[in-house]
């Protein structure tokens, strides 16, 4: 359902995405991991149309919605208004579906979004994205700044969303354990390119992940051990 081919994205003279290709099937959950500056957020912003590509193509069969890094609330507006505006692109003002999936939000609907805890705001961000009834949900750093219990709850909501509604998920996540646990497939990005891709269990063991999260030293040690 998502077809990205030879994508190049630049910020001025700096290349953020360098000839990246990535394909997602409908209903698939894919983790996108990599070190800071690998181009993960740029890729999400390009998929959702916020950043224009320099070359290559991004084609999505269906609607795509984004849960952005840092949650990006309309801070002075109520939770209800935040959710309603999430449905702006399709003029969806029916909150029932979102409240069914994320029942905690119903009790928060009158509260100002800027005054909620980080976990509650992340839930609003997910709910706001769901208001667009997306076929693909692109999530940028689900766990950022959140307690493990809150993250576990949000991850469970994603699994339910995927299982019951068939919504595809592209999850950018620094917390690789969480990303590989939630998503069956994973891609590792480095310097704007996919350097490893496959089932999460095997990608988790790859040098690319070790290099991305523990530096070259860890990968060198692994190779040295293999030689020994």
């Amino acid at each position: 359902m998502l077809h990205i081919d030879d994508l190049v994205v630049r910020y001025g003279s700096a290349v953020a995405i360098d000839g990246l290709s990535l394909h997602l099937e409908a209903g698939e959950m894919v983790a996108l991991v990599g070190p800071n500056g690998a181009g993960k957020s740029t890729l999400i912003n390009t998929i959702t149309g916020l950043v224009p590509p320099a070359s290559g193509s991004v084609r999505c069969e269906g609607r795509v919605a984004q849960v952005p890094e840092g949650r990006q609330m309309f801070a002075d507006m109520s939770v209800e208004d935040n959710l309603l505006l999430g449905g702006w692109s399709i003029r969806n003002r029916d909150l029932t579906e979102v409240f069914d999936l994320l029942p905690d939000l119903a009790g928060l609907r009158r509260r100002k979004a800027g005054r909620l805890s980080g976990g509650q705001q992340q839930m609003v961000a997910v709910g706001r994205a769901l208001m667009a009834r997306p076929d693909l949900l692109a999530i940028d750093e689900l766990s950022l700044g959140l307690a493990p219990l809150v993250v576990a709850e949000l991850a469970e909501h994603l699994r339910v969303l995927n299982r019951e509604r068939g919504t595809a998920v592209l999850l950018v996540e620094q917390e690789v354990g969480l990303a590989f646990d939630v998503c069956a497939r994973a891609c590792v990005l480095e310097a704007g390119r996919v350097v490893a891709s496959g089932p999460s269990a095997s990608v988790a063991e790859s040098d690319a992940v070790r290099r991305a999260y523990f530096g070259d030293l860890a990968a060198d040690e692994t190779k040295a051990e293999a030689v020994r």
Partner: peptide
């Protein structure tokens, strides 16, 4: 009004407003 809220949202957080399609 929905449009009025979209105006307020654009003032509050232009990035998020663009993200939701405003």
């Amino acid at each position: 009004s929905y449009v009025g809220k979209a105006l307020t949202a654009s003032a509050s957080n232009p990035f998020a407003a663009r993200m939701v399609g405003i």
